[in-house]
Amino acid sequence: MDQPEMDEFEHRLAAELRPVSAPDGFTARVLARQRRGRVRRARAWLAAAVLLWVLSVGAVVNRQHRRHAQQQAARQQFDLAMQVTGRTLYQAEQAIRGMDVTSIEVQQ
């Protein structure tokens, strides 16, 4: 490459590398995009947290519901057991008082 060609090349290179000012609103657009990304991430985290919270509350409510059902079932069984026990004791008492009893042993 001779000198004139070299000068021409440098001249073009300098022309290509000259500072170019950013288009109007470029900085604002970049900052806005960055802000939107953060908001999106925050929303995603919030949605995940809310979802987890809702699932947890749902699990608690479900557990309480099952617990209540178990309590009611236990109570029904207990009532039935006490009814049978009470009736049997009552019948025993009545039988003891009855006339057809041939022997009674009561020990203190």
Partner: peptide, 29 residues
């Protein structure tokens, strides 16, 4: 600022989850 806010929200969510789990555990006991 936005990052601090989102971190706070996530932390609050985690605390809520932790409290809910603790409550569930207490109910289960």
């Amino acid at each position: 600022m936005g990052r601090i806010r989102s971190t706070g929200i996530v932390s609050a969510g985690l605390v809520l989850i932790f409290l809910t789990a603790a409550f569930a555990q207490a109910q289960n006991a």
